[in-house]
Amino acid sequence: MSLIEVHDLEVHYPIRSGFWNRVTDEVLAVDGVSLSIEAGETYGLVGESGSGKSTTGKSIVGLEKPTHGQVIYKGKDITKSANRQKLDYNQDVQMIFQDSLSSLNPRKRIEDIIAEPLRNFGKLSKDEEKLRVLQLLDIVGLDADALYKYPHQFSGGQRQRIGVARAVATNPKLIVADEPVSALDLSVQAQVLNFMKKIQRDFNVSYLFISHDLGVVRHMCDNIAIMHRGRIVEMGTRDDIYNHPMHIYTRRLLSAIPETSVAHREEARAKREAVEKEFQENQQRYYDKDGKVLPLLDVTSTHKVALPADEVAKLQREAD
């Protein structure tokens, strides 16, 4: 059974306009997303800004109230706050944010920042708490003298590791990481990603890894869903997505990743422009008449894509 299952999640934001400021329309930030995350895996949620990936992540943590749909954890729908309470959900699911400086309280010392989730849920004595915080700092490779410092005294990478330590404090089952390394330099990014992987190995935690960086996602994720316009256009294993992309939008994203191969750059550009042209010209084939993403259909047991039924049938035959 999956750790968490998201069923037909929708998050709508009202648009108010007109003289009486009434709700005249809605933004469908998330428009029917279903996915399931297994224990101990890293699930990648990829998309460009405005695709609804962060809103999906927040809904799973409980920071955003869905308009419709369910998030099932241990057989209960945790979009209801009573269920979250009952299941200790807020202890089992933690979040890491992109901006490590603004997500850590600048007036609190690291000891208090990391201990905060422990104090909310645990009944540790002072000494036990301190021991646990030291242990957590050790997990993310920071010294004990970090305890009494403030967030601004650390570099971006160190702060992000403090964020990881705080998220791990309650022994969560799932950590939702929203663009955790986007603001970091390459060499620092490597460090944080390594720690995230190590923690996963040691504690069997699952990640929902939200990112726009397909290179990082390929490195981190076992299963991946690509979002566009509030819906999932394609989902599958890393191999499905990177080696057998089917939806034009997935191919468009993949062709836009800069590769470090100087010799093939003109080829890459030609391919990118061809995909872009197809994307612009064949919208009606890949999207419905309102420009919405089509329903997902199974191509293989792991690979789903939002394409018309006849095309999926063809792809299924090819896959067999």
Partner: peptide
């Protein structure tokens, strides 16, 4: 070192290279 710390295709299960210090 920089080039090596980039996530590489087909090396997903390896740790990324980290430059010591800062």
């Amino acid at each position: 070192s920089l080039l090596r710390s980039m996530p590489q295709r087909d090396k997903e299960n390896d740790d990324l290279y980290v430059i010591q210090g800062s």
